[in-house]
Design a protein around this nucleic acid. Structure first.
Lengths: 232, 232
DNA sequence: CGCTCTCTTTGCTTCAGGTCAAACAGTCTT
DNA sequence: AAGACTGTTTGACCTGAAGCAAAGAGAGCG
């Protein structure tokens, strides 16, 4: 296998402040792996053998409850560090990651982590920030689910998706990976039926345009107002 | 002020693997501050001037939404590291921390953090674990709120409180700080009325005993079964 | 091309839990 | 010990969203 190109990861926040030599050294321990659409990168409760950086594509991370209900924890986008369970002293992955489109990731064996962190302490410092911002997201989500009603939660979820994985098209911002009503429901703690009704309503108001596994926000500003406006 | 005693913090997970000398060095930069019951340690959106370790007492950490609704993020117990906003590269605290009983904390200026982390890299590594386990908690909470109904959520919340801050008394485990129905409601995404009704119900079954700002779990095992049993 | 699968829409019904309202009971104050 | 708070309980009512059911509609496949 040819050496991986440093430019792949040079601009990522996790590697902020590293020299090209450092990056080369870190990359030496990684391999890149393709994950075809639908395939799983790791499974909940599986031994945390590796950690990853997504180079290309999108993953859905979800948790399954003992009684089989699913909750989408987040979507992983290009550039994101993920599967760092062992950095948090976990033996297993707390969730399942599945490719929603053909994806490509850099993969390090978990065993490399302590070694890399010892050699490059800024890696740990940057990782605290990554994990911290995820903690923030999770808290925001708790606050939202606890205090807002479904329509506003769905609006927020869509706006967030648009920001993280939106692709501008001529008539709005489209989520650039296939996403179902069920997915949105699992992100917002509701049911696909309710999401479908809400999207239908928005479609009538020309707020969004949506079809099979596809959502385009036609009027982000109006959607934002809807998401933020007080219940009055 | 006399030097702070190393034994105060020697056993805390954040300082795992440090020598007594290291601890002394780290403590040099801290002061200890008393927070009387009801006083606030820091406020949401306030500049993150300090970070803390709680030596004694209990704090309630909560977020307030723009429209004034409150959500309890967590309770801080003795030994916990908290207020580490700046380690996550935040300029301000994301929530408000208030003493629910007279409390005592070690306080470092935020500016000390980069210095300490540079000198003691294991601090960063341990902090990842701390933040990681909080991320886990937050995700667990998202999953619970999204999938379980109120009674089970309240049961889980009480069991968690009992584990973190339970004091064994002759007839059960008592939460060892004053906690109101409103608090429990804000932990579980419901209303104080609903919590009151649920606790009344449990009282009738001798599952708990509760009064003004006080909750004792008389039958933890039965409560656990209630929390875990499928809806059938 | 037509069959099958999976995703989506929509109507109808139900109900958990929120809202509103009022009374009640510890605790603290003076 | 009377009054004022603050937290708790309970009843009556209402509604947002879940559950159930069934029909539609793209997309992929043989």
């Amino acid at each position: 296998m040819p050496n991986l190109d440093k430019s792949l990861i040079a601009d990522l926040p996790v590697f902020a402040g590293m020299t090209p030599d450092d990056l080369g050294d870190i990359l030496k321990e990684a391999q890149s792996i393709r994950y075809p659409k639908g395939s799983s990168v790791f499974q909940q409760d599986e031994e945390a053998h590796s950690f990853f950086i997504l180079l290309h594509g999108h993953l859905r991370v979800m948790k399954v409850t003992p009684d089989g209900q699913q909750v989408v924890v987040r979507f992983v986008n290009a550039g994101d560090l993920f599967g760092i369970a062992m950095a948090m002293a976990r033996k297993t992955y707390p969730a399942t990651a599945t490719a929603v489109v053909d994806s490509l990731a850099l993969v390090w064996p978990s065993a490399a982590w302590p070694r890399l962190v010892a050699k490059y302490p800024s890696l740990a410092v940057n990782t605290i920030q990554t994990v911290g911002s995820r903690l923030d997201d999770a808290h925001t989500r708790v606050v939202e689910i606890s205090t807002q009603q479904v329509e506003k939660r769905v609006a927020h979820a869509l706006l967030r998706l648009a920001q993280q994985a939106g692709r501008k098209s001529e008539d709005g911002i489209q989520i650039d990976f296939p996403i179902s009503r069920q997915d949105v429901a699992e992100m917002t703690g509701t049911t696909l039926h309710t999401v479908s009704r809400i999207l239908s309503g928005w479609e009538d108001q020309d707020l969004v345009e949506s079809g099979r596994q596809k959502i385009t926000i036609r009027n982000p500003h109006k959607l934002f107002m809807l998401a933020e406006r007080p219940v009055d």
